[in-house]
Design a protein around this nucleic acid. Structure first.
Ligand SMILES: [Mn+2]
Ligand SMILES: [Mn+2]
Ligand SMILES: [Mn+2]
Ligand SMILES: [Mn+2]
Lengths: 226, 226
DNA sequence: ATTGTATTTTAGGGTTGGCTAAAAAATAAT
DNA sequence: ATTATTTTTTAGCCAACCCTAAAATACAAT
């Protein structure tokens, strides 16, 4: 039951599952378990099994019962196009509509399913072909290619090293609000002033302001060292 | 089973039906028949009956079996909010993303269902609170109020009267393309030069260019006389 | 008033996507 | 190597939305 990727269309729900599988498998590298998908999608494992069968038939994943599932080349490309739309819309919401970066996710989750290649292309153009979304995640191009940047967690920086905040691991609204409150943001230039051996907490400089962060927080902030 | 309009949500399909009923009833004035809804939605009458029962239970329409259906105040307000979103997105597509006015409908049909009051409000702001969409149709405000303009069909203008094209009755892609080809467009200033008694066709002036149009075409072009 | 036709609804069925409870398979523990 | 536990799948159900075919109702014509 193979469908050519050019003409294949998945339902919104199938797209959401495929995207989750893509993310959980770290871009298609690792296999993913039914339970992990269920918890990340907030559905029940039984529903996931059902969906995996369907996605398997459409050949966007390789599905062997009772063993994990792996995304196929076909599926990876499809997922990347949905992710591309998701992140382009996030840029639109923040850059053009002045949303805060912690307000965009739910809306982008809807907008990513709008089907119109022309719309995606024109939006990309309108936004000036952005390469990264407001959370610092790379935006795949129309061929699914992503411009990766080598990143390390903030607490893995060397003392006195400088860099730029490019992404967060935990993009929950709560965490994003916390960062806003203390004055950290994507794109901010940071310098690691000190590391406390005892608890792994760090002292950093952001916009001439000194901040203290727990190891827990710092490990969720990703940096490109420059 | 009444739900307060503040918290009521309809499915995408229910929203499409309600919008169709609103349009067919001329803004809620007239009653609408099952068959009319079916043909305008390109579904079967049996499906419409099913949906009418559901919309009746949610009290957005008054439904009496075997008789027509009328939209309620509740339903009218809901429909107007969907129409508001539809037309705002059309403005966005044409003004910002450089879509042609005959390319926007299908995409707006999807975008109108995105649920985010903040998005709608910010989009409105971003577009500078437009009052009319690219087809000249009025955009309801957040309270559902519309700024109506008195319009007449082009072929009902007096000879030598001048005005502005503000809308089209038939907004099929075919018709819109025809208009583009002959050089007519929403916003164009027109003057009626002559009316042919015999067949009702007209001679008009658009951008220093003289055009002939059949009565059929002219009756689908709406003018605000100035 | 009765009959015929057009309209509308109901009955029954298919697909998608979700659920719970029970069965099956894989994995871990003894 | 058994047994116990965890994971995954199947079975059976429900809701939304669409369909066709058949029945019911309304409306028009005599
Ligand atoms: Mn989504
Ligand atoms: Mn993002
Ligand atoms: Mn729609
Ligand atoms: Mn329009």
């Amino acid at each position: 039951m193979k469908k050519d990727s050019q003409f294949m269309t998945l339902t919104n729900s199938e797209e959401n599952y495929l995207k989750a599988i893509y993310h959980l498998s770290d871009g298609g590298k690792k296999g993913v378990s039914t339970n992990d998908i269920a918890s990340s999608m907030k559905t029940k494992p039984a529903s996931v099994s059902d969906m995996l069968r369907k996605l398997g038939e459409k050949e966007v994943i390789n599905y062997r019962k009772y063993y994990g599932v792996q995304i196929t080349e076909e599926g990876r490309n499809y997922a990347l196009q949905v992710i591309r739309k998701h992140r382009l819309w996030e840029v639109f919401l923040v850059d053009k509509l002045k949303f805060n970066w912690d307000e965009v996710h739910e809306v982008a989750e809807q907008l990513e399913h709008v089907r119109s290649p022309l719309l995606t292309q024109r939006l990309d153009e309108f936004l000036n072909f952005p390469k990264f979304d407001p959370h610092g995640d790379p935006i795949p191009d129309e061929f699914g290619d992503v411009k990766a940047r080598p990143r390390i967690a903030l607490n893995d920086m060397e003392v006195n090293a400088a860099g730029q905040i490019v992404a967060v691991k935990d993009s929950s609204a709560a965490f994003l609000r916390y960062l806003d409150k203390v004055g950290a943001y994507i794109g901010a230039r940071v310098k690691l002033l000190d590391k406390v051996e005892f608890d792994g907490s760090v002292e950093i400089l952001v916009d001439q302001k000194t901040l203290f962060m727990s190891k827990d927080v710092a490990s969720n902030i990703l940096i490109v060292v420059t």
